[in-house]
Design a binder for these strands. Sequence first.
DNA 1: GACAAAGATGATAATTGTTACTAATCGATA
DNA 2: TATCGATTAGTAACAATTATCATCTTTGTC
Lengths: 157, 157
Amino acid sequence: MADGKGRYAQIVQKLKTHGHHLTPQRLAIIKAIVESDRHPSVEEIHARLRKTFPTMSLATVYRNVMLLKSLGEVLALGFPDGSNRYDGRHPFPHPHVVCVRCKKIVDPELQSGRELARAVGDATGFRILSHRLDFFGICRDCEAAGKKGCGAGQAAK
Amino acid sequence: MADGKGRYAQIVQKLKTHGHHLTPQRLAIIKAIVESDRHPSVEEIHARLRKTFPTMSLATVYRNVMLLKSLGEVLALGFPDGSNRYDGRHPFPHPHVVCVRCKKIVDPELQSGRELARAVGDATGFRILSHRLDFFGICRDCEAAGKKGCGAGQAAK
DNA sequence: GACAAAGATGATAATTGTTACTAATCGATA
DNA sequence: TATCGATTAGTAACAATTATCATCTTTGTC
């Protein structure tokens, strides 16, 4: 999936028009987010960038992820267990499927979100601004791996 | 809504069959949870019970909420901002509508959850165990109150 | 290319919600 | 009522996130 490139340029452009500086760290963080299809955590982004930026501070990752979020270019997925994962490819509300064992997060193809949101708005009188729809389960890989851990394990906390 | 009474008895019964003691604090916490239709936070439960149990520890509330959750009698709603709310009336996965201004949480009447879960399972190969569906918006009260705070404000964090 | 102003970084302290720990107390059964 | 194990209150420990601040970098201009 190579649409990471388009997203990268798109985000950089938005930063420019909003008058933000383009530091190497910032650009690397953006690249890490859009290149990953794993919905990475801040820790994962940080760990990955330490290879090229040994002095990269965790605070910098947090700051930039928050900035991107505030610009609407990243979707933050906070989970009840305190873990946070980020989606830089589809920065708008959409469903997720989470493997409770290996923490893999998949974006299922579903169109029903919008319709559902409108139905909920009608039923409750709320003006719906956003939504979150998470399904938790066991992915095929983990199912196949039996009781043991899944090969593609990517723990988030 | 008086089904709180039934839930109370139900939960007490389950605690008994699982060999847990029925302390006054524990019973009061259960009552507070099932009597509230506000999806209270731990802090709210604690604050409310301080009136009758001035020495009630915050840790006790956490412990008991976790116990009820582990018994499947309470549904924990963790939000990305770190706040946690608890539903003792419908302790199973279901949709929620959250007012982002006053933090009110409403349970809309929707049946589509189960069907949707099956569709997602089919589409992704996951064995779906649970789900969360949260809509975020502005409730009618807050909308009417304009830019100012909502009268029924019940901040969670 | 050098300059000034605004913004960004790195390191660490502070904060916050939650969990772990301990000694003392309480509940349920015989 | 005696006994044992569960539970409590209080507090320390924890972990994830945010705030702070001195230093350094980027940007736009000359």
